[in-house]
């Protein structure tokens, strides 16, 4: 039996990797994948606690998170295609119009 701590540490490591990826990578798709990684790290925590506490609420939350993640992927990819058609790039360094 793997104890709860291992799950939590793994989850924290995955979350940190995801965060660093979001902050440092320049390719939008990679950033996107990192976001998915962060979400899934959270999902892992939910499952672990659900099992540890014997309560199904955590698993239900995971379904919600997955649903949201799927929707997010669809919208995000569509945005990226639209952006690519305009700029021929999905490098976030090129997205610099959001300033005064």
């Amino acid at each position: 039996m793997v104890s709860l701590n291992f799950y939590l540490v793994l989850s924290a490591i995955l979350f940190a990797i995801g965060t660093i990826g979001v902050l440092t990578r320049r390719n939008a798709i990679v950033i996107f994948m990192c976001v998915e990684l962060m979400l899934n790290a959270v999902n892992l925590t939910f499952i672990a606690f659900s099992k540890y506490l014997g309560n199904l609420d955590g698993q239900i939350f995971v379904f919600f998170v997955m649903t949201v993640a799927a929707a997010e992927a669809a919208v995000g990819l569509a945005l990226m295609i639209a952006y690519f058609k305009n700029r021929e790039s999905i490098d976030v360094e090129d997205m610099n119009l959001m300033k005064w």
Binding site: T19, V22, L23, T24, R26, I31, V92, E93, M95, N96, L97, M98, K99, W100
Partner: peptide, 13 residues
């Protein structure tokens, strides 16, 4: 306000 998304994300983090 640099206009770069990852700068904002960094700030948030």
């Amino acid at each position: 306000q640099s206009g770069y998304v990852h700068n904002y994300a960094m700030g948030m983090a």
